[in-house]
């Protein structure tokens, strides 16, 4: 029982990690919370659902289309919204409000297009349950954990071992100095948005399959929980977002089992508040060293 709950928690948590990584990456390069991230997550889920029925139930094709589609949406978010603000040196608050506006546009687009009622989400890949001792693990959980962990690994490799990853890290540390290295920071920022939105879409589909239903409000709730995950790990820190997501998933699942399932949002918020009060730099955050 406990083992199964832990597995459940890790599965859902690994998905939270994916979304949290998106918050953290964008925050890293722009020092801005992208409130549209939760909406892109939802859009990914709906869009994949739509193509799944439209394109003859080919899961992987639709999954990839959904992810690419959301990557494009992320690109547009920056290109048509935030990039102009950067060019005119607008205050950060303007960017924040812009992402909220984008979130509203996406949410309402979803409402208009897909309606407000809760929809069943097909379990698009199902190969039964696998028994381990006297517990068992579902194919869903395997796919979720496998996809999420593989993506996290890939993303870590990208960030820490490639030139583009180094450029992203530099942009996060000092954007002007990064420009002086001959790096096109607008390109790096675009890429960050594409990546974070694609990750959100992956998460949307995985969670849809996990709960087997989808509705318009889940974007906000997942948005909040994943933001809590990013803060818990330390905003702007990649491994922090990964661990933060896993922890929030675990707390939520265990809380739902041993306390009450109604509290899952409350648990996330309680953690968020505790972290902000007692360790605002997050689990992985270091006190910044910055000599002047």
């Amino acid at each position: 029982m406990l083992f199964e709950q832990i597995l459940n928690g890790l599965a859902i948590g690994s998905v939270y990690s994916l979304v949290a990584i998106g918050y953290t990456m964008v925050f890293g390069v722009l020092k801005l919370v992208n409130f549209a991230n939760g909406s892109v997550y939802l859009l990914g889920a709906y869009f994949t659902l739509m193509t799944y029925f439209a394109l003859g139930r080919n899961f992987w094709l639709c999954f990839i289309l959904g992810v690419i589609g959301c990557g494009i949406v992320g690109f547009c978010l920056d290109q048509f919204g935030l990039k102009r603000l950067r060019a005119t040196n607008a205050p950060r608050l303007a960017g924040l409000i812009t992402t909220m506006g984008m979130a509203m546009i996406i949410d309402n687009f979803i409402l208009l297009f897909f309606g407000s009622e809760t929809k069943p989400y097909p379990n698009m890949i199902n190969f039964g349950r696998i028994r381990i001792g006297n517990s068992s693990i579902s194919s869903n959980q395997i796919v979720i954990l496998g996809v999420a962990l593989a993506l996290m690994l890939l993303l870590s490799l990208l960030t820490y071992t490639t030139k583009i990853g180094k450029a992203m890290q530099c942009t996060a540390q000092n954007i002007n100095a990064t420009k002086l290295m001959g790096i096109n920071t607008n390109l790096i920022i675009s890429m960050t948005f594409i990546l974070s939105s694609a990750l959100a879409a992956v998460a949307g589909v995985l969670v849809g399959m996990y709960y087997q239903t989808i509705d318009i409000t889940s974007g906000f709730s997942v948005g909040m929980k994943t933001m809590a995950s990013a803060v818990l790990g330390g905003v702007g820190i990649l491994p922090g977002a990964m661990v933060g997501g896993l922890l929030i998933g675990l707390f939520e699942t265990l809380g739902a089992t041993y306390v009450s399932s109604g509290y899952s949002n409350a648990i996330a918020f309680a953690i968020l508040i505790l972290v902000i009060l007692f360790k605002p730099e997050g689990l992985f955050g270091k006190k910044t060293i910055n000599k002047v």
């Binding site: 890290q169 530099c170 540390q173 000092n174 002007n176 100095a177 002086l180 910044t288 000599k291 002047v292």
Partner: peptide, 11 residues
Amino acid sequence: SPEGRQVFPEF
């Protein structure tokens, strides 16, 4: 090489 050094502190 800009005013005020501006090295990447975490590298």
